[in-house]
Simulated assay, not measured.
Amino acid sequence: MFYGEKLSSLRELNGLSRKDLATRLNVTEQAVWQYENDATLPKIEVMNQLRTIFNVETKYFFTRNYLASEVSEERVAYRTTDRESRKKTKLEVTYLNYIDYYIRYLEQNLIIPEAKINQLIQACQLILNNSNQSRSALIQQVAAYARAELGLQHNRDLMYVLEKSGIYILEKNLGMQIDAYSTITKAQRPYIVLGTFKKSAVRRNFDIAHELGHFLLHRTVDMSILTPAELKAIEKEAHLFASAFLLPEANFKVDFQKLRRKSNPDFYIDLKRKYLVSLTALEMRAYGLGLMSYQENRYFWGQLTKKDYKVNEPLDDEIPPIKPGKIRSLFKFVLDHQVIQLADLLGNFNILPEFLSQLFNLDEHFFDQYLKPQQDYFSQAVIDLDSFRQKPLSE
């Protein structure tokens, strides 16, 4: 029996409309609708095209759907302008459900350390429940507490520290308008998805901290029912959190006071190198802390425009963006230690290696070594592989 819902899910996973897929298959949009609703069985030549387009075996469409709805739209935190597209949100939910299913499959025979991030979320909720302080003061208190609890000493280690805390960070083509988004599944597994569009390392750092802010500040907020004004307020809070988290007040004040000219962006370059945040983020933090006058603030932004730093800042081409490593390390661990055989993984789900490479944004040759006899090689994972341990056979 052909399961049209699996075709529908694959189409959404790849960001295709029915019209898009119809064009690639050289059939009508109505024909695609019929395939997905089990009204018509695709011809053999169409099945072969589907196999090539989606990197799955033909048998994939003749086995029951295995995806579970672990991610809900109301828990996906987008930027304000992105939320306007409900269709886009639905596509990302499909993507996250695929991602989450395969991660759970890879981890099923592993002992995974308790996610520190979930404990941190609960602790921060207690801080936020303190009504004796302003919301702004509470957010900055949460930021300072989170940085201390996570043990973040230098912002260059932000990606590593958050992945170690239990957050799964992925890269995906989100287009030019979307920087990142985040969600927590029904099973309390947190995800941050970063866009692959070219972006400086410092701006990516801010994106990651911004999404962490959503986890800690807005865990219980239903994003799908907020008005544009409410969404804007939510984004502003996450922005404030990221600023306070990446630029701890006490240390930043000391460093900022050493600047010879507070209104000239060029004098911020050493601070950018130290904190790995943009010149604009540094200035906005300083202005927010009352370290600059209104006139200095205006002159800074004027100079920023004059020097064309709004598009490309100094050091942007010198500091390489850090790439996520946890999921890559997870694949390496289970395959290197033969917890799971790649052939079994592919055979169980009737998928091709390219399916996984594209889904998890891995190098196109990542699985090559597991498709032929093992050879001795040396590798160093981004995430400490000791954090993964195979369950005893008795379990």
Rank of each mutant, 00 (worst) to 15 (best):
E45L: 13
P190W: 13
F360A: 06
E318M: 08
D157H: 12
T28W: 03
I225W: 07
I340P: 04
A77Q: 12
S394D: 15
Y275H: 02
N14Y: 13
S379T: 14
L158M: 04
D384W: 08
A238K: 02
V71F: 05
L50D: 01
E163W: 08
R189E: 15
Q177V: 09
R298Q: 14
R203M: 06
L259E: 08
P320F: 05
I53C: 04
N55S: 09
D363F: 04
A115E: 06
Q34Y: 13
L7G: 11
W33I: 03
Y294Q: 14
M1W: 14
E235S: 10
N361E: 14
N132K: 07
K306M: 09
N14W: 07
L330P: 13
L393I: 13
Q369K: 13
Q141K: 03
H239W: 02
C124V: 00
D317N: 12
T94E: 10
F366L: 00
E107V: 11
E171T: 07
F241N: 00
S394R: 15
D82F: 10
H365N: 08
P228Q: 11
D38E: 11
R285G: 01
I322M: 14
L246E: 14
A180V: 12
K372P: 01
K232N: 08
R83D: 09
R219T: 13
E12A: 06
G302C: 03
L226R: 09
T220P: 03
K326C: 02
E395K: 06
L152I: 07
G151K: 06
T280M: 04
D100W: 14
S278G: 00
F355Q: 10
R285Y: 08
R18F: 01
K272I: 01
M284N: 14
L342G: 07
S8G: 08
A229P: 02
N132D: 04
K253N: 04
S165Q: 07
L138F: 02
K116N: 01
F252V: 01
F2M: 10
E318I: 09
Y102L: 13
F206K: 03
I44M: 04
L240K: 15
I112L: 14
L96Y: 08
M159F: 09
E29N: 01
Y191C: 01
Q133T: 10
S9A: 13
A381L: 06
Q257R: 06
A238L: 02
Y102P: 15
S263P: 05
